[in-house]
Write a protein that binds this DNA or RNA. Sequence first.
DNA 1: TAGATTGTTAATCGATTAACAATC
DNA 2: TAGATTGTTAATCGATTAACAATC
Lengths: 209, 209
Amino acid sequence: MKKQKISDAVIHRLPRYYRYLDDLYNKGVVRISSNSLGAKMDITASQIRQDLSCFGEFGQQGYGYNVAELRAEIGHILGIDSGHRIIVVGVGHLGHALLQNFDFEKVGFRIDSAFDVSPALIGTEIRGVTVHSMDELEDYVASYHPNVAVLTVPQSVAQPLADRLIGLGVRGFWNFTNVELSTKEDGVFFEDIHFVDTLLTLSYRISQP
Amino acid sequence: MKKQKISDAVIHRLPRYYRYLDDLYNKGVVRISSNSLGAKMDITASQIRQDLSCFGEFGQQGYGYNVAELRAEIGHILGIDSGHRIIVVGVGHLGHALLQNFDFEKVGFRIDSAFDVSPALIGTEIRGVTVHSMDELEDYVASYHPNVAVLTVPQSVAQPLADRLIGLGVRGFWNFTNVELSTKEDGVFFEDIHFVDTLLTLSYRISQP
DNA sequence: TAGATTGTTAATCGATTAACAATC
DNA sequence: TAGATTGTTAATCGATTAACAATC
């Protein structure tokens, strides 16, 4: 195992490894070699072994990798067992869709509260998650210390809201607002979901002659 | 201008360039140098010039780039003016949210129809987009030739549905189903949106000591 | 044991950055 | 004109792939 900075390229492949291993695991597959996993994922065996070697030695010569074990290891690297807590801020169409469809628990996030300004929503419950008033944000965060916030609010309030949450101790933002957020604070991370970018990439590809 | 294969790295930066230029354009900024754009975007001026040089010469020595012009050029490269047509297949929470919030026209996509199996939805209209029965897919595609489909259907039907649409001539898939789709057909592109992956990346970052 | 497959080192390939002549 | 800034070539850096000894 090499001790070094993990490159972004590697980090971005980890969730995909996890998805494939989780799938194999659910299918009851016991072992897999870097070669056959590479074939499935359409990447080289060499890359898989190189990537994994950043974090440890998880395989066995002549055998390959135990699926359940490797799945658990990568899950651990990704922090699935870290007991992260998450809140949804903004329960419009998109916030609502995420609450309804997204399996936060499956990736190790505990969620029990969402926040919105609309009186019509406050007090309602969506799949077991209660919608609170935005005014309760301070009290809630002080009590439960969620470390990640899903931002599904209008663009105009995104940055001030992020600043407010950072002040309260939130360290990660799953940002659907289409505004690139930033902060001077260290150790705060933004994962910006730009729907537009992916659709434009697709537009580019189908537009090529 | 170099004639060569455009790398994925470059392609994935194009939409971000477009967003920044669109923003500058809307703010009334007339010209910008690679240096100041790089400062804004937190990338090197050299990279911007290198990237743009793949597609042509859009700047002027001693002056920089005309914002309106460069914005239009990149928009053109991305196919924003290609008159693409798009349909939404699956009007659950997420499909609904996209229909309500996403500005398809702004990125050059015409949308007028969505499709679902639910009798309760068929015939309704969401922001001017009519929901049709899935049975009408063949007729609709034959008449209007949409080239992209947004897939917001259950995982289990994703691949067969994609195959069906490919057979009808659809060439791009904005795929929200969390299943990686594929085809043997040439010239068909998938843009898979894996919500899980981005949240796990965030999980990884906040889990680091 | 023999065959398979790992982890790692070395080689290659590609992407990013630096430098600079050209020129507006 | 002088200063600014481009497009492009060359240099550097990093990521991917290949090769192979180690070993289960």
